[in-house]
Design a protein around this nucleic acid. Structure first.
Lengths: 344, 344
DNA sequence: CTGAAAGCGCTTACAG
DNA sequence: CTGAAAGCGCTTACAG
């Protein structure tokens, strides 16, 4: 690999100053047409490209945003990322992605590492540990020193910034209500996440629906399974010892695994047990039966978060900081893992 | 947001030179302990972080790599990306990701855009259009001007650089052989991709297996469906007018869609029709029946490609360029969409 | 032990 | 019409 050509080299080639070359390549009216012509031609021939790093240093803008997510092997984050990438690209921004793997220290290290002029702003969805330990200093420092942050999905109310969320309370409510209206009375909630705000909201929505429809709460079928426990054992135990006629899976994995376990134990879906899943993937139309789900429109969430971030980056420095929290609507997609509506 | 603190400001605060501050923060033995102490403390308090852009300009290394892929909404690329991110992070590199959406012009624009000092090297999986039009000038230019490239999965033999691939010929051969040994004779191949090297290799592997086992080739059941055609119609037509007792899906979507369509038409899987899919996702264990597949170990592919790229980036400039092509082994995972082995 | 200088690649206000 | 100078934030070889 030979070195990239620079203004200096072009200047040398024509025995003019670097400033002249710079202006010529910008087609400045200050420079004579003949000079511009020969310089431009030479630059083209030699594949000149302005060094972006030098420009970043000059402008104090890198036209790059950062994205920190707990995982990338999860359809929700993949789709959100896809939305982020689309908008960033449209607006001429590059995207640097870091996965926190649910770990606070990884998240802190990543945020700190990006706090050095590399990016103009940050999109972040908090790691589980960050939420459970309620540690946000790294984020506040970033906002203080480096640039705007937009939080998406896994957010914290303690951090004052822009946020994009799903209406978790309401969509859990709707899912529960749907099951109730199809005749279910013993509705279980299953998740592999626990100390995460969105999970709490979903459970609250579920509880509210039970309350509104005057159904009793059975805490033993609210099954939040810690990573160190065996998912299959927990679900089997619940199915064997509790009365369950519906399961709401709070993420893809929980729903489909629970369904398979129930089927293995001889339950018919949806007649014996109905299933609803939160999801961002289209895959659930291919299971047998296909699974009814709450679609979170995660591509749109990614797009929205990125639009907000870039508008914050590009707004004048002295603008009043006004923060907003945008809520993305969800859709219930009825498929074959739930029974037809009976009430109303 | 207040401005990040710089060496200049620290220097000002203590009335010393910028050079002194720089050395003090590096704990240089040239600087007196007392000076170092006060400067280090001040820097810590004020959250000083060396500006990475300035360092990049100085060192001509950005510690950032680029990744260009045709898609991110595809389990294969998601998993590969996950492997890339892991290794890059371990080695202290950032990752900038761009999706080409299968378009040559998007790919060219992306490569050009990254050819300006922003990244130290590039990982790329070619877009469909790049392969079909056999246009590689942008890649050669990048290598010439900007840094090393490692191609993965969708590669081209015309570009002289490092490559990481799946043994597509052999694994298609193995899949076909497996079907033959379970008693299938009319084996169809279905794909939504066409002018892509890996697809051609897979088809060649398939044809070789038919030849070796002395089975006739029926070109009408090699179904490569262009995006402008309707997948469902094409599959239905094939099932209705051709004799088919097995389907090899060359990507996730093709396999699962074909299976669902066959089931809807009353075929039993695997008794009437067996299914094997190429895949990178675990999802196929949840379909009914679960789908036998060729696992491409894509996380490993991503890791391998990144290791090669970083070693190329970090090797001395004057090292002899030796290029390698690494082949990732695949595994056949038997599930319930294929019959038990009958021969041998 | 400390600092001035040159330089990474660029831009722009200013002088000539 | 062209160029010298200053500067973005940093490092390092060299001088004092």
């Amino acid at each position: 690999m030979k070195q990239r050509i620079t203004l200096k080299q072009i200047a040398l080639a024509f025995n003019v100053s670097i400033a002249t070359v710079s202006k010529a390549l910008k087609d400045s009216h200050e420079i004579s047409i003949s000079t511009k012509q020969k310089i431009q031609e030479y630059a083209l021939q030699h594949n000149y490209r302005p060094n972006r790093i030098a420009l970043s240093l000059l402008n104090k803008k890198t036209k790059t945003i950062g994205v920190i997510m707990p995982s990338i092997l999860n359809p929700f984050f993949v789709k959100t990322f896809s939305g982020i990438e689309q908008i960033a690209n449209e607006k001429g921004y590059n995207v640097i992605t870091i996965v926190s793997h649910g770990k606070l220290d990884k998240e802190i290290a990543s945020v700190n590492m990006l706090e050095n002029g590399l990016i103009d702003g940050l999109l972040i969805s908090l790691s589980e540990e960050t939420e459970s330990k309620q540690h946000f200093k790294h984020l506040e420092e970033f906002i203080e020193n480096a640039g705007p942050i937009v939080m998406f999905d896994r957010i914290s109310d303690s951090v004052i910034t822009d946020k994009v969320i799903v209406d978790d309370f309401n969509c859990a409510y709707k899912a529960t209500e749907h099951l109730i209206k199809t005749g279910c009375k013993h509705i279980s909630v299953v998740s592999t996440l626990k100390n995460v705000g969105i999970i709490k909201l979903r459970i609250n929505g579920y509880l509210k629906a039970l309350e509104d429809y005057k159904l009793p709460v059975n805490k033993k079928i609210i099954t939040l399974i810690k990573p160190e426990y065996d998912f299959e054992t927990e679900i089997k135990t619940m199915l064997d010892y509790q009365n369950v006629d519906a399961i709401i899976g709070l993420e893809e994995f929980s729903a489909v695994e629970a369904m398979v376990i129930a089927q293995d134990r001889g339950y018919t879906i949806p007649d014996d047990i109905s299933i609803i899943s939160f999801t961002s993937s289209d895959f659930f139309k291919y299971t047998k039966p296909s699974i009814t789900c709450i679609n979170q429109h995660s591509v749109f969430m990614g797009k929205t978060a990125t639009e907000i971030l870039i508008s914050k980056i590009e707004q004048p420095q002295d603008a009043d900081p006004v923060f907003e929290t945008r809520t993305i609507k969800t859709t219930l997609i009825e498929r074959n893992s739930t029974k037809p509506l009976v009430i109303k």
